[in-house]
Computed example of a mutant assay.
Amino acid sequence: MKNNLSNEVILQEMRRLLAYSCNDSSIENNHYENLHLVILKKHFNAEDVRIDHLNNVIHVHICLDGGADFFGRKSVVDVEMKYTDINEFLQNCIEGSDQNIFFYKNILNFYSREV
């Protein structure tokens, strides 16, 4: 993959990869499960994410303050989100900031080597 892709092309390719990764056979085989998890972790700044495809629910474990108290405990919240279309949900997590573009570029490089 070229290193000088425009941000718009990178976003477009990420959206295409997500759409492809959400087809029925990919979901059933969990082939792209890690892709979906890292996209959700990045978007929600989450420590842990689980996707329950059977019930169309995403469980996200989010650290609220980024730090820990004196005893090393973090302020966390568990969020449960329902979805009707996993592809649509993941597509809405794609953002065009420079930091995200770099992240997406690495993902695209990884998956282009896999194909």
Rank of each mutant, 00 (worst) to 15 (best):
I62R: 12
Q91S: 14
A19E: 15
V79Y: 01
V49M: 11
V38Y: 06
H31Q: 12
L18G: 10
V49S: 05
H53Y: 13
V76L: 09
I107L: 15
K41D: 05
N100L: 10
I58L: 03
N30Y: 02
E80A: 13
I39A: 06
L64K: 13
N55G: 00
N106S: 12
M1K: 01
D78F: 12
E88V: 05
L11D: 07
V38T: 15
A68E: 12
L37R: 13
R113S: 09
H53F: 08
I51K: 06
I27C: 01
I86H: 08
R50P: 01
A19K: 15
N23I: 15
E28M: 01
C93F: 11
L108Q: 05
D69A: 05
F71T: 03
C93Q: 06
I10K: 09
C63D: 13
M81R: 14
E28W: 02
V38L: 07
R113T: 15
V76G: 00
C22Y: 06
H59I: 06
L37Y: 13
Q12C: 14
K82G: 09
V9K: 15
L37G: 02
N23E: 12
N100W: 01
Y32E: 02
I51L: 02
N100V: 03
I51F: 08
E80S: 04
K2D: 12
N45R: 07
S112E: 14
R113Q: 04
I10R: 08
L40W: 13
A68P: 02
S112H: 14
A46P: 04
N3D: 11
H36S: 08
E28R: 15
L35E: 08
E8S: 10
Y32Q: 00
K82M: 05
I86F: 03
L90C: 09
S21K: 04
N34Q: 09
T84G: 08
D52T: 04
